[in-house]
Computed example of a mutant assay.
Amino acid sequence: MITLALWIVAGYALAALAVHGLYRRSLNHSAAGERRFVHYVLVTRNHGRQLEWYLRAISWYAKLSSKPHLVTLVDEHSEDDTLAIAERMNRAEGMELQVIRFSGELSREDLAQHSPELEQEGFLFIDLRKPGEAAKIPYVHVV
């Protein structure tokens, strides 16, 4: 009986040490300057029918990975309800969403010149105007 009690106490002690070790390791990673968030840059034009799903997928992935996320939506003169959906999702999900209206061709280099801080932070550039680019978004499968 005493042997069993000692094994139980030893198990709890090892579990407590493991939790403390993992916590200390997470503090060291954040102090070392590891990027603790994900930044998505979505380029859209008349993507009102898909945008809500894309933003929800990003939000779910961020919640599951427990990393904060930032979404920058670069819109090229959408004529549908793309911007209205983005505004509604910003309020509903509480995600940090920034909308930039842009006209003309946009490349990764153009965006880096437009916002140099984005290049330093590192970001995932997804041009939804190109077929198959949406597959870069977690939980989105393009056929």
Rank of each mutant, 00 (worst) to 15 (best):
M1I: 02
T3C: 11
L4A: 08
L4C: 07
L4N: 11
A5K: 13
A5Y: 11
L6Y: 11
L6Q: 15
W7V: 14
G11H: 04
G11K: 10
Y12W: 15
A13Y: 14
L14M: 09
V19M: 09
H20W: 15
G21L: 08
L22V: 06
Y23Q: 12
S26G: 10
S26F: 03
L27S: 11
A31L: 15
A31C: 06
E34W: 06
R35A: 12
R35V: 06
H39D: 07
Y40L: 01
L42P: 09
R45C: 04
H47Q: 14
G48N: 06
Q50I: 01
W53S: 11
Y54S: 01
Y54K: 09
L55P: 00
L55M: 15
S59T: 12
Y61W: 15
P68S: 01
H69F: 07
H69C: 07
L70E: 11
V71T: 15
T72N: 08
D75T: 07
S78M: 03
D80S: 08
T82D: 07
L83Q: 12
L83N: 09
L83G: 09
A84F: 02
A84V: 08
A84G: 02
E87Y: 04
E87R: 12
E87D: 12
R88K: 14
N90L: 02
R91Y: 01
A92G: 01
A92T: 11
M95Q: 05
E96L: 04
Q98K: 08
R101P: 00
S103G: 07
G104F: 04
G104S: 04
G104Y: 11
S107I: 00
R108Y: 09
D110E: 12
A112H: 15
Q113V: 05
P116F: 04
Q120M: 05
G122R: 04
F123D: 01
I126L: 02
D127T: 02
L128V: 03
R129N: 13
R129E: 05
P131W: 06
P131I: 01
G132S: 04
A134G: 01
A134H: 01
A135F: 02
K136L: 05
K136W: 02
I137L: 01
I137T: 00
Y139G: 04
V142M: 13
V143T: 05
V143G: 11
